[in-house]
Amino acid sequence: MKVYGDTLSGNCYKVKLILALLGIEHQWQHVDILNGETQTPEFLAINPNGKVPTVLLDDGRILSESNAILGYVADGTNLIPDDRFLKASVYQWLFFEQYSHEPFIAVRRFIQQYQGMPPQRVEEYHSLQAGGIKALSIMENALKTNDYLVGEKLTIADIALYGYTHVADEGGFNLADYPAIQAWCKRISEQTGYVPMRS
Rank of each mutant, 00 (worst) to 15 (best):
M1F: 06
M1P: 08
M1H: 05
K2C: 02
Y4T: 05
G5E: 08
G5T: 05
D6W: 13
D6Q: 11
D6F: 14
T7P: 06
T7H: 00
L8E: 13
L8W: 10
S9F: 13
N11I: 10
N11R: 11
Y13Q: 09
Y13P: 07
Y13L: 09
K16Y: 07
K16R: 14
I18Q: 03
L19V: 04
L19N: 04
L21T: 05
L22T: 08
L22G: 08
G23F: 03
I24M: 10
H26A: 04
H26N: 10
I33N: 01
G36E: 02
G36H: 01
P41L: 03
E42W: 07
F43Y: 14
L44D: 00
A45Q: 11
A45K: 12
A45W: 03
A45F: 06
I46E: 00
I46Q: 02
G50K: 09
G50P: 11
K51Y: 10
K51I: 14
P53L: 06
T54I: 06
V55G: 01
D58I: 05
D58Q: 14
D59F: 11
G60E: 04
G60W: 09
I62Q: 09
I62A: 10
L63T: 04
L63I: 14
S66D: 01
I69L: 12
L70F: 13
G71F: 07
Y72A: 09
V73H: 07
T77N: 07
N78L: 07
N78R: 12
L79D: 08
D82K: 11
D83T: 03
F85Y: 11
L86H: 04
L86N: 07
V90E: 04
Y91K: 02
Y91M: 05
Q92C: 02
Q92V: 00
Q92A: 12
W93E: 05
F95I: 09
F96W: 10
F96C: 09
E97G: 14
Q98Y: 06
Y99R: 09
S100P: 01
S100E: 13
H101Y: 03
E102R: 04
E102C: 03
F104G: 04
I105C: 01
V107R: 15
R108Q: 12
R108N: 12
R109A: 09
F110K: 01
I111Y: 11
Q112V: 07
Q113D: 11
Y114L: 13
Q115A: 13
Q115R: 15
Q115P: 02
G116F: 03
M117S: 09
P118H: 02
P119S: 12
P119M: 00
Q120G: 00
Q120I: 04
R121L: 15
R121F: 14
R121H: 14
E123N: 11
Y125I: 01
Y125H: 08
H126M: 08
S127L: 00
Q129G: 04
Q129R: 14
Q129L: 15
S137V: 01
S137R: 11
E140F: 05
E140K: 10
N141C: 10
L143H: 09
K144Y: 08
N146K: 13
Y148E: 06
L149W: 00
L154S: 06
L154W: 05
A157I: 03
D158R: 07
G163T: 02
T165S: 10
D169F: 12
L175Q: 02
L175H: 01
W184D: 10
K186N: 13
R187N: 08
E190Q: 15
E190V: 01
Q191G: 06
T192D: 14
V195H: 03
V195Y: 01
P196M: 02
R198Y: 13
R198E: 13
S199H: 11
S199K: 12
S199M: 08
